[in-house]
């Protein structure tokens, strides 16, 4: 396996990425799915980062950009310091191996005509992960056990003979087979039953802890994001509302959008008051459809004139936290790219 030449090289990096769909000179239907987004996933310090947003926040666009499935309108996606559109064949293969993905739907990713073994054997062959059939079998069985599946219960079966949770864990096993450096998990537990979610999340946490794999956990569900991640990035309509260590963002949310999001979650707690708790006032700019400034201004009860006029910069409210909201304008302004990576001990240059 190729290792980065320099320890300073970041594994995956998005630099001021903007993605616009539609458009053209006379087309009014331009949708900015992601705006000026930057983040770094470091190879040397495996982390679990959660990217949380509702539908339309740009979270799936971000996953597709990271995987090279779509190109940014402006900005760059870098792998080991190189723009992924300029990778050589060899580098591309290395990229495909080191950056794995787990998709949302454990029903659609399988070919129903093949046994599940096929989905696991293919990468072993393609990337020559084993020297002999016996070695391949061993690797497979050990990997399945690694995610808590019994090989005798799973191998030799067709996808329809397995439950959604089992299928999703096989996908986790498949990602693990490659011993990648990073796994992009796009809503990996949203389609499986609650009683199995905790198990699959635990699997992902083990990949991070035992194999040093970085995880980018993309979800709409703040509760599972809180459960699994160390850092969290809250997206709203293609922009970062708030970023920071998960404990402080969830326990003391700053951005009015994050506060709304957390308050809206119904918890399995008979003492929570959920219905009728939505007592926020409307935004003073509720009727303004297209806001030039903060995208949340027309829903925000705290919105001020400046919010609708100019998009707020990122204010660094704590060592490891930034919020894009004028309520925190007394804090120093900071660059997003310095906040969407693990806090540094020594500055990373690339």
């Amino acid at each position: 396996m190729e290792r980065p030449k320099s320890k300073m090289e970041s594994l995956l990096k998005l630099e001021n990425v903007t993605k616009i769909f539609g458009g053209g000179l006379f087309n009014r239907h331009r949708i900015t799915a992601l705006e000026n987004f930057s983040m770094t996933i470091d190879a040397e310090r495996p982390s679990i980062t959660a990217l949380v947003g509702e539908s339309g926040s740009g979270k799936t666009t971000l996953a597709r950009l990271l995987l090279g499935l779509t190109r940014p309108t402006t900005g760059r996606v870098m792998y080991m310091g190189k723009d992924i559109t300029t990778l050589t064949r060899r580098e591309r293969k290395d990229f495909r191996r080191n950056v794995q993905v787990i998709f949302q739907d454990p029903f659609e990713v399988y070919n129903p005509f093949y046994k599940v073994d096929h989905a696991l054997n293919l990468p072993i062959r393609k990337f020559k992960l084993a020297q002999s059939p016996e070695e391949a079998r061993d690797l497979l069985e050990n990997t399945l056990r690694g995610v808590g599946l019994l090989p005798e219960d799973t191998l030799g079966r067709y996808p329809h003979q397995l439950s959604g949770g089992q299928r999703q864990r096989i996908m986790v096993a498949r990602a693990l087979l490659m011993r990648p450096k990073v796994i992009v998990a796009d809503e990996p537990v949203s389609m499986i039953d609650a009683s199995l979610r905790a198990t699959v999340l635990e699997n992902l946490r083990e990949l991070n802890r035992d194999f040093g794999i970085s995880i980018l956990y993309i979800t709409h569900d703040l509760t599972t994001a809180y459960e699994i991640s160390e850092r969290i990035i809250v997206l709203y309509k293609g922009s970062v509302a708030e970023v920071g260590d998960v404990e402080s963002v969830v326990q003391e949310p700053e951005h009015p959008y994050t506060r709304l999001l957390i308050r809206s979650i119904p918890m399995a707690d008979p003492d929570q008051k959920w219905l009728g708790s939505h007592t926020d006032q409307d935004s003073p700019f509720a009727d303004t459809l297209n806001v030039a400034g903060c995208k949340f201004a027309n829903r925000c009860p705290h919105a001020m004139t400046v919010c609708v006029e100019t998009a707020p910069p990122y204010f660094k409210t704590a060592t490891d936290r930034a919020t894009s909201c004028y309520l925190y304008e007394k804090s120093p302004v900071v660059d997003l790219k310095d906040m969407t990576r693990l806090p540094d001990k020594s500055p990373v240059t690339s």
Binding site: A194, S195, L196, R197, A198, T199, V200, E202, L222, T223, T224, Y226, E227, E247, V250, Q251, I262, I265, M267, A268
Partner: peptide, 17 residues
């Protein structure tokens, strides 16, 4: 198995499947 928003620093148990 239910996720909880109780602080990870102070709670006594983690959800398990």
């Amino acid at each position: 198995s239910l996720p909880s928003m109780e602080s990870k620093l102070t709670r006594t148990r983690r959800p398990r499947g």
